[in-house]
Amino acid sequence: MRLELPHSEIEAVYKEMILELFRHPLNKKIPKRYDVKRRGLNPSCGDEIEVMIAWEEGKLSDIGHQGQGCAISQAAASLITDYVKGKTATEILSITNTDMINMLGIPVSYTRIKCALLCLSTIQDALT
């Protein structure tokens, strides 16, 4: 509970970069060809995401995501789907939650952590 904080704190989370990725998410597509598809669910808000992954020569060659989400989850999905391109399964599985939050570069409160991590954990699920 934060009372009457200046708008600057709102702007710290809802930075232009985050909002831009929310309005125009990256990799929000169904790849032409893919090898695995996985659904992820954020039980606290009911948001669903679906990721589709294509492999080529042991590396992730293409990835797309579908579904609805809040600004933080959409921005995170954009960033992580770009980041995993060209990486091996081992490399992707070693990405930590902290890496994901650092990528977003905003303060993520306890209640929003699931939003920030939904896409990463769905991708990692798809690999195991």
């Binding site: 509970m1 934060r2 009372l3 009457e4 904080l5 704190e9 709102i10 989370v13 809802y14 606290s44 808000c45 009911g46 948001d47 609805q68 989400g69 809040c70 600004a71 933080i72 989850s73 409160s109 929003r112 939003c115």
Partner: peptide, 25 residues
């Protein structure tokens, strides 16, 4: 606008509301 984002911004205004499916998926 996603309910989570609305509730988050309202919280920072000192207005406490709930967002999501409200246990009625």
């Amino acid at each position: 606008a996603h309910p989570h984002d609305i509730a988050d911004i309202l919280d920072k205004h000192g207005v406490v509301v709930r967002a999501g499916h409200h246990c009625t998926m």
